[in-house]
Amino acid sequence: MTLAPVFNLLSGLLLALGLLFWFAGTWPMLGRASYLTKLHYLGVADTLGSALMLLGLLLRFNREWPLLLLALLSLVVWNTIFGYVLAVCSQARPRS
């Protein structure tokens, strides 16, 4: 018995959950919340949602695992630090 159908199902679930995080995290950005609140939601959408999608892809295309794993690491680190940079740049006070 092969595990491929289980992996495919799990992958589909992760992709769907990632898409849900994308939309649920993007929707509040159209509202009137403060800039930093929107950045909190951006973290949900572009870091956590995209990471779930890449995990889903990792299960589906497991022959490409080195590149997908590298993409996952880069995405999580880059998006998180980009959110931090945007937050710091929004502050009026001078940094020391």
Binding site: H40, G43, V44, T80, I81
Partner: peptide, 28 residues
């Protein structure tokens, strides 16, 4: 530390305070 604080959606690091003893964190 900045990664750890910022990856959780309820907190974002806003940099360090002047003497570098603590991080300024924005929390929802």
């Amino acid at each position: 530390d900045v990664f750890r604080i910022t990856i959780t959606p309820l907190t974002i690091a806003l940099g360090m305070d002047g003497p570098g003893r603590s991080y300024r964190v924005h929390r929802l």
